[in-house]
Design a protein around this nucleic acid. Structure first.
Length: 159
DNA sequence: GCCAACGTTGGC
DNA sequence: GCCAACGTTGGC
């Protein structure tokens, strides 16, 4: 199966790349996604070994800050069943899970981070959901061409 | 803090 | 099934 590429958004005030680095095995479950399109990508699209950009949103400098690898494919997100969780969804149950998550492991930090403003300047990206106006998708598929273009630009980038 | 864009909800 | 109202996202 061909490797697929992704971009995962997170608010650093909730969960940052530093949090991931400090996590046990530098691995975390990507809980709390409550959007159907994103859910479908988590449940059906992501495979073990896929790579994803780790993106900080809703912060001072929105940017790709690192790379992670998928270490476990989609499985039910238990936070949906937990009334104490901010991600609790009373309309779902363990018998009929609605929300899914994957596990991701830290692979690499981008230093410096590659900011959204620079991503927008790349001409050869074609349509990338991240830079489309009003986009709110938190799990975004990336073509291998886009991946290469962003990665090589990011390696050359210095603020 | 503002506001545009989007997804979801619920009345009909 | 439609669509207005609402809540949320996220860049600026």
């Amino acid at each position: 199966m061909k490797k697929q590429y992704w971009l995962l958004k997170t608010e650093p005030s909730t969960f940052s790349i530093d949090d991931l680095c400090r996590a046990k095995n530098q691995t975390t479950s990507w809980e709390g996604v409550r959007n159907y399109k994103a859910r479908n990508f988590l449940r059906d699209g992501m495979k073990v070994g896929d790579l994803a950009f780790f993106y900080h949103s809703s912060c001072k400098v929105p940017a790709i800050v690192g790379i992670v690898q998928i270490t476990r494919a989609g499985y039910p997100d238990p936070s949906a069943f937990n009334p104490a969780s901010p991600y609790y969804d009373p309309k779902t149950s363990r018998d009929h899970p609605r929300w899914f998550m994957v596990d991701v492991k830290f692979k690499e930090q981008l230093d410096p981070p590659f900011p959204l403003s620079a991503i927008k300047e790349l001409s050869h990206l074609g349509s990338l959901a991240l830079i489309q106006k009003g986009n709110r998708l938190s799990v975004i598929p990336i073509t291998s061409q886009q991946w290469q273009a962003i990665l090589s630009a990011a390696k050359k980038y210095s603020a």
